[in-house]
Amino acid sequence: QEPLTVSMLAAAPLHKQKQMIGERLYPLIYNVHTQLAGKITGMLLEIDNSELLFMLESPESLNAKVEEALAVLHA
């Protein structure tokens, strides 16, 4: 699967952009947090698309955000 790019996203309508990012994000999160992957992905999709794209390329950033999301979920 080729990486998601800004231009690919820009060609899609706004709601579809989040969908496209979610489809990439979900499997990454599912690998680590199978039970909560749907909720964590839903939370992370509220982040700006530009940052989400960066997170898809940066496992460290993604993990940090996932941990933040988990902390909020458990609060």
Partner: peptide
């Protein structure tokens, strides 16, 4: 009671509804 439906859950292959009110 007041059910809090947050966060919205993402399901692969299902159209994302979390931001449909924008």
């Amino acid at each position: 009671g007041s059910s809090i439906n947050w966060p919205p859950e993402f399901h692969p292959g299902v159209p994302w509804k979390g931001l449909q009110n924008i």
